Amino acid sequence: MKKTFLLLTFLYTSLSFSQKVYYNQAVNSCSAKNDNDLIDKCIKNSYLLNYDFTTLNKETVSTSKIKKSIMLIATATWSAPCWGEIPAINEMVEKYSDKVEFIMIFWDKELDKIKKMAEKLDKRIKLVPAREEDKVATGNLDISGFVHKLDYPTIYLIDQEKKFVNVKRGAATPSKTMTWDQVNEINGKELEAFLAPVLK
């Protein structure tokens, strides 16, 4: 009886582990017709592999060593919504850096432009620029093996078990009809709701 129980436990564990789908596999094999399907049917509930990102300061950030949840922000310095979201992101870092690791990956290879944006960002955010060896093409950014195929800004929320629990696209930005105060309020509320699943 004891041997049977151990065998069943081993089989259950093996089957559970083998059913885990990783992000890159899910994205690259996804037959989604649009971005929303890509997110809902392929990205959500997939798992993060280990990535070693090289930051703007030449430090290595290994996702396998991060014990907190992760907010992975894909951005570009030429995107107005990316700039518009900065105050709200900084607010989230101030409030939740003890529970969430904030990593920002850039489409840009131009370090001067990234450094200009970095001046506006909370210093606790890990900034990861695209390098020459990274694949950069329309609609596809590959940094250290992490494939990003969506527009900018896109934020991925990854829990402590390294599971993708949410994806957020776009942000409000100042315009003739929307002030900075309104933008900050909208973006702040959206990010609070977005982070809620990992703050419980």
Rank of each mutant, 00 (worst) to 15 (best):
N36C: 00
D37H: 10
L38Q: 15
L38F: 11
I43L: 08
K44N: 13
S46N: 06
S46F: 04
S46Y: 05
S46C: 07
Y51W: 12
T54P: 02
L56M: 01
K58Y: 04
E59D: 13
T60Q: 09
V61S: 05
V61R: 04
K67I: 09
K67S: 14
S69R: 09
S69G: 13
L72W: 08
I73Y: 06
T75W: 07
A80S: 15
A80Y: 12
P81G: 02
W83L: 14
E91F: 07
M92N: 12
M92E: 14
M92W: 09
V100I: 03
E101F: 00
W107P: 12
E110F: 08
D112E: 15
M117G: 05
E119C: 05
I125M: 01
L127W: 01
A130V: 04
A130L: 01
E132P: 13
E133A: 08
D134V: 07
D134K: 06
K135G: 09
V136Q: 08
V136W: 02
D142H: 08
S144T: 09
G145L: 02
F146I: 04
F146D: 03
H148I: 03
Y152I: 07
I155E: 14
I155F: 10
I158S: 03
D159K: 04
D159P: 07
V165W: 05
V165M: 10
V165E: 11
